[in-house]
Design a protein around this nucleic acid. Structure first.
Length: 496
RNA sequence: GGUCCGAUGGCCGAGUGGCUAGGCUCAGCUCUGCAAAAGCUGCUACAGCGGUUCGAAUCCGCUUCGGACCUCCA
């Protein structure tokens, strides 16, 4: 790690870009809030997991041993903040006529499928909330013991005001307790709370509630924020390096998480670096299920959505997302996607050309400054994972590759190796891009031989100046989605 | 209403005081029977108005517009 450029991370807690120094190098602990598995994930969700996939990949690339924990929220949390709200998984179970845990399994599977097609790596540990009910009850007890929690009618709430006397509440989200109070809406079922600012640690379940567990206070279920407090510290320790999640989780979720951990242990700031990924927008608005503007990956690939002109591959979308910085909002549009598709295509061609590059120079050619390219790549990623800049450097590498390929620049064998290592390292390992979709692997050797034959026939026709035959073959293949490319050294074909 | 963030060329999207991304589009060129593809080259923008400064897209103020959070949310 020491021979790499420094890594700076924008810390949401301090609002500063800080030098990354792990608590116990070379080990790094990272926790990311995962999905609530009561429906299909959409591309907005994918963006966040992609963001932390890059963090995970780059830290690994630098040589850190990362323990990456990403949870599955499978407890049915309420649809609203009121006691009469139905829990989401229970509601979905009724709608689909399934057991709640069938819902959980179904959408967990869907989530995993989606992660796979976007080439997002699996975490080291993927704990689920229902698997940690015991630990959650224990943490509630600790919080009560320290005086920051109280029972009310079978439910347990966190005493925010009391906590705020001993610790700064609202630091992460930049909220002041008095401002919060004046803006708190009056909601149903809050009479159990001593204060509207308080949030639930444990909720008593009513008779119709499907997912519930015994506890010292009632048959019920844990509050939403509790699971992450418990699972992060269980697997990473009371203090760990990075905690990530979507911007929309900053408040109240992460704020409450911080309060719970401090309230349970008596120690504040257990997380070194808080990172928040920004939202994916559609026509300038946040992609959300409630807005009806959320694409599922399936709709994206098939193009079967009213806002999509056609389908795009998962890699196109991955590349598109990485062309924006994770901390900025990114707007999803057909034009932007088409631009990304073409750009990625050019990048892929250069990566493919790389292996056939000739190393014709007997000695080092200073015109091909690969060390400088490598330096720029590291600086880009070291500056808060700036993938857009990294990609721009890779396009400079593309230009170099093409120049070498076309014989305008000659490089030595050592330079060729360096260039290959550089491009492969950043393209495949850091950015996690793939050459083509696995889904398109339906072509057979036979079909390819037939295409080669047709192209050969056309070349023969061309040499006989039989333009009619040549053009009709070209047109016929074009209609089938195969493009013929005439080059200096003969013709080749490509599927669209 | 409160808190915070943003406005960059035809489009997308980096960049936080002087050097200035990158992709797509477009134009020119190379190649070519023609075309396509590919490659090369070119295209100097920072919402408006004021201020600070030798110098501002970048800092400060105001205005306009947009968004996020404040409730489940990636």
């Amino acid at each position: 790690m020491s021979d790499h450029s420094p890594l700076y991370i924008q810390n949401s807690l301090t609002r500063e870009k800080e030098l990354f120094t792990p608590l116990n190098a070379p080990y790094v602990g990272m926790y990311v809030c995962g999905p609530t598995v009561y429906s299909n994930v959409h591309l907005g969700n994918v963006r966040t997991f992609l963001t932390f996939d890059i963090v995970y990949r780059y830290l690994s690339f630098l040589g850190y041993q990362v323990r990456y924990v990403r949870n599955i929220t499978d407890v049915g949390h309420l649809t609203g903040d009121s006691d009469d709200g139905e829990d989401k998984i229970g509601k979905k179970a009724r709608l689909e006529n399934l057991e709640p845990m069938e819902i959980v399994q179904k959408y967990t599977n869907d989530f995993h499928d989606v992660m796979r097609i976007f080439n997002i790596k699996s975490p080291s540990i993927e704990p689920s909330a229902t698997g940690h009910i015991v630990e959650q009850i224990e943490m509630v007890k600790q919080i009560i013991t320290r005086g920051y929690g109280y029972e009310s009618n079978g439910s347990v709430y966190f005493n925010v005001r009391k906590f705020n006397e001993d610790f700064p509440y609202g630091q992460l989200s930049g909220r002041k307790i008095d401002d919060l109070l004046s803006n708190t809406r009056v909601l149903d079922g809050q009479d159990e709370k001593n204060d509207p600012l308080d949030f639930a640690l444990w909720k008593k379940a009513d008779a119709s509630h499907l997912m519930k567990w015994p506890s010292p206070w009632s048959e019920g279920f844990p509050g939403w924020h509790l699971e992450c407090s418990v699972m992060s510290t269980k697997y990473l320790g009371n203090s760990f390096d990075i905690h990530g999640g979507g911007m929309d989780l900053k408040f109240p979720h992460h704020e409450c998480e911080i309060a719970q951990n401090a309230g349970a242990t008596g120690e504040c700031n257990s997380v070194g670096y808080w990172m928040h990924g920004n939202m994916l927008t559609v026509n300038g608005r946040k992609m959300a299920k409630s807005e009806g503007n959320g694409f599922t990956p399936d709709e994206l690939i098939t193009g079967n959505h009213k806002l999509l002109e056609r389908g795009y591959t998962a890699m196109t979308v991955r590349f598109f997302m990485l062309q924006g910085h994770y901390a900025s909002t990114l707007d999803f549009s057909n034009d932007a996607l088409q631009a990304a598709e073409k750009g990625l295509g050019r990048l892929i061609k250069a990566v493919q050309a790389l292996k056939d590059l000739a190393a014709t120079a007997s000695e080092h050619n200073p015109d091909a400054n690969i060390d400088e390219l490598a330096k720029r790549c590291e600086t880009a990623m070291g500056d808060d994972f700036n993938t857009p800049i990294l990609i721009s450097v890779l396009f400079d590498a593309v230009k170099l590759i093409n120049n070498i390929h076309d014989g305008r620049v000659a490089i030595s064998a050592n330079q060729k190796d360096a260039l290959q290592n550089l491009v492969h390292g950043y393209f495949f390992e850091v950015l996690g891009l793939q050459l083509e979709d696995d889904a398109s692997g339906d072509s057979t050797d036979e079909a390819e031989s037939l295409l080669d034959l047709l192209v050969q026939l056309r070349s023969d026709a061309k040499s006989n100046q039989d333009w009619t035959t040549a053009d009709s073959i070209r047109q016929a293949l074009s209609d089938l989605g195969v493009t013929i490319k005439d080059g200096k050294d003969g013709s080749t074909w490509n599927r669209d």
